[in-house]
């Protein structure tokens, strides 16, 4: 009897792997490096060596080389195994590279476009890098914000220090401290200045990952209104 129950449980677990998590075959081949902790509205997921984008689901595990794409008014919350956090805001595309060696996790996130808020929880000897079309950033601090368009990258450093390197024109390198914003353009110029009030508002807005739902009752039926709540 107990054997049967265990068998059923095992089957259920296998089903849940198939349905909620991901292809178990792929899981067997590659280590999970992060999970999709939250999916809001339109989020798609692309595995390595494929051109297909599939609907992403909450609780899905991500492996080295997987990509995430968000639609309008959408959010994907990516949590690495070391608890580092990426809030991939609307209309963004990011690709995650990560390797795990023992108890260390090195991470490099490629942001093709959009807005990503990050909150790093790394050890001294681990790497956390971001690559954008115009620059490379090594995170030495804890939190900040990227906004990326093909020609330009804005980086707001909230806490700690970030080393940025332009990808063209000789690869200029500069350090960006907390409370500053760096702009890296396609010509390889890096300009650093104090973060403006508007940018601070954007930064704060990018941290919102809690959602709240209301039901709007109308004379012709009900509508569900979903909002990003104040954290």
């Amino acid at each position: 009897m107990r054997m049967t129950i265990n068998l059923i449980l095992m089957l259920l677990i296998m089903c849940s792997t198939q349905l909620i998590a991901q292809n178990s075959e792929e899981a067997a081949n590659s280590k999970s490096v992060a999970i999709l902790n939250k999916v809001v509205k339109d989020v798609e997921h692309q595995k390595i060596q494929t051109d297909d984008w599939e609907e992403a689901k909450r609780g899905m595990t991500l492996q080295d080389g997987h990509s995430i794409r968000t639609g309008g008014r959408s959010l994907a919350l990516v949590t690495f195994l070391d608890k580092s956090l990426l809030r991939v805001r609307e209309n963004s595309i990011v690709k995650i590279f990560s390797s795990i060696e023992g108890t260390k996790q090195n991470k490099n996130t490629q942001i093709d476009q959009g807005v990503v808020n990050f909150d790093v929880s790394k050890q001294q000897d681990e790497e956390f890098k971001f690559t954008t079309p115009t620059g490379l950033a090594s995170i030495r601090g804890t939190s900040g914000y990227f906004e990326v368009i093909p020609d330009k990258t804005w980086l707001i450093v909230e806490e700690g220090l970030v080393e940025v390197k332009a990808l063209s024109n000789g690869g200029e390198v500069q350090n960006v401290g907390a409370g500053n914003t760096a702009e890296i353009d396609k010509e390889g110029n890096i300009s650093i200045r104090p973060t403006t009030e508007d940018e601070k508002a954007k930064l704060n807005s990018s941290k919102k990952d809690k959602t709240i739902k209301y039901i709007i009752e109308t004379s012709e039926g009900e509508y569900e209104l979903e909002l990003f709540d104040e954290n």
């Binding site: 449980l9 259920l12 677990i13 849940s16 792997t17 998590a21 899981a27 280590k31 999970s32 999970i35 609780g59 595990t61 195994l81 795990i100």
Partner: peptide, 10 residues
């Protein structure tokens, strides 16, 4: 009921 995936438990 927990799925063990390397260093990850789900």
């Amino acid at each position: 009921m927990v799925l063990f995936a390397d260093d990850l438990l789900l």
